[in-house]
């Protein structure tokens, strides 16, 4: 559906280097990356606002690398929604249809349908400046969707909203894409958003697409240390791996971790903080890592608690507030850190 081949671009302080990407019809694709990685630039290039220095952009089997934005049939939604301030809500939504020389009745009908679908019919004659962030976003989506775009591009569409509205609209975006079968490319720096929305995620760092995969692959099987750290894995270690009876034993110096991997020799490994279980009493079981340690730091990440445990190596673990209280933990408590061999990802 969308194919990007060997895309290069230098623009202001941003750059994109050798981007190769294929996005399927109806897919919800999230481009995840830190600020300044070139995410918006990538999106604007798909839309045709910038032309690439090198490379090609194909949409629906057509090479649109040099096509102007108006010939690409793409919907674009910015972080601030960019509603036209001199037009009311209905005029904003109709804008694209009026350009397409559609009959008046058809414009009325399509506008009414899309506004009903997004639940904004009652806002018809309001000026954009009087709308809440959530309402503005829906108007922007309606305005983009009414012309049946081949793909909807969303640039940090949730980041300007309060957290409650964010949660609600995240669900609505997902439902919308599923119901309408619309191809979406959504750019964000927010891991939770990427995890919740993406059928697949592409991690963009320093202008390079570092990894493309399902949320499961990105968050649990990151390709390298940099991606691991960006997707929230604090527990990254280096060690010497040797394989015994089909199970890898990785020597970190102070302790030895069991993992499931074929790699031997010097390796890096990571464990997601939420894969770690905290126990008051240790009981050994097969293919399970168990280390005794001491809680050195506790910080609240409501509704979760983040613990740092020194067990020869420092481990970061995330547990619920409820289990934190039940285990009667505080800084200095003696605990056991436990995680499955299958939770260990060797990079």
């Amino acid at each position: 559906m969308i194919r990007i081949k060997g895309l290069y671009k230098d623009w202001k302080e941003f750059s994109l280097k050798n981007i190769d990407l294929e996005i399927k019809e109806g897919e919800y694709f999230v481009i995840l990356g830190p600020t300044g990685a070139g995410k918006t630039l990538a999106l604007e290039m798909i839309a045709g606002f910038h032309s690439p220095d090198k490379g090609e952009i194909w949409i629906g089997g057509q090479n649109l690398t040099d096509a102007p934005p108006e010939d690409r049939n793409i919907g674009f939604i910015y972080q601030d929604y960019s509603l036209f301030p001199h037009l009311d809500v209905k005029e904003n939504v109709e804008f694209g249809l009026k350009l397409k020389k559609v009959s008046k009745d058809k414009i009325e009908e399509k506008t009414r349908d899309i506004m009903e679908l997004l639940g904004i019919s009652h806002l018809s004659h309001r000026q954009p400046s009087t709308l809440s962030g959530g309402e503005q976003q829906k108007v922007a989506i309606a305005r983009a969707m009414v012309v049946n775009p081949r793909v909807l591009l969303l640039d940090e569409p949730l980041s300007a909203l309060d957290s409650k509205t964010q949660d609600r609209l995240r669900d609505e975006l997902k439902q919308l894409s599923e119901k309408q079968g619309l191809t979406m490319i959504h750019v964000t720096h927010d891991r939770v958003e990427a995890m919740a929305l993406g059928d697949r995620i592409g991690v963009l760092m320093d202008g390079k697409l570092r990894q493309v995969g399902t949320p499961q692959q990105i968050f649990h099987r990151p390709l390298n240390e940099e991606i691991a750290s960006f997707v929230g894995i604090d527990n990254i270690y280096e060690g010497e791996s040797r394989i015994e009876n089909g199970i890898a034993r990785i020597n970190l110096g102070e302790l030895e971790i069991e993992a499931i991997t074929g790699k031997e020799g010097k390796v890096k490994l990571c464990v997601r903080p939420e894969e770690i279980t905290i126990l008051r009493k240790g009981s050994r079981s097969s293919a399970r890592n168990l280390f005794e340690g001491r809680v050195v730091r506790v910080s609240e990440r409501y509704p979760l608690m983040k613990l740092t445990i020194d067990a020869g190596k420092e481990f970061q673990a995330v547990i619920t507030k409820k289990s934190f209280l039940e285990l009667n933990l505080k800084e200095g408590s003696r605990v056991y850190v436990s995680f499955k061999a299958s939770s260990v990802h060797v990079l």
Partner: peptide, 17 residues
């Protein structure tokens, strides 16, 4: 905001429009 022009382009407006 130049982004308003960009959005208009994505909706099918030529540069002139």
């Amino acid at each position: 905001d130049p982004r308003l022009e960009k959005v208009a382009r994505s909706l099918g407006a030529t540069e002139w429009k």
